[in-house]
Amino acid sequence: MSIFGSNEKKVEEKTTFNFDIDRENINHSNLAKDIKIHGSIEAKDYIDFDGHITGTVKSSTIHLKPNSYVKGNITGDTITIEGEVDGDIHAKDLHIKSTAKIKGNIRYNNIDIQNGSIINAEFFYSS
């Protein structure tokens, strides 16, 4: 248990570190709480999303915040999910936080899941 605890901490430190860098230096799209989108979003660098979307989301780094809801497919390198997703997820690094609710298929290379998340999905691992 103790070994596991230390691993968990390391992962969190890494992710928060990345976000700080992204916000300051790289193109950063922020979509606030009350935004509703029907259609798809595509960005090169960073999407910070807290609204509702029906459609696909594509970017290298995607952060879905606790109020977010996505019905559709999500594709990215690093995806952090704190909200609700109904659709397929395709990610290299996938971080599922405790507030997340996920339904659909998940394809990933690396994953970590926090206690408390609700997941009903089929997982496909690819190296």
Partner: peptide
């Protein structure tokens, strides 16, 4: 309640008990 460490490999169906989904 599920906790997965970064690096673990999982293939298959994951179901949450008592979930509406």
């Amino acid at each position: 309640s599920l906790q997965v460490s970064y690096g673990a490999k999982i293939q298959g169906i994951i179901r949450h008990k008592g979930s509406v989904h």
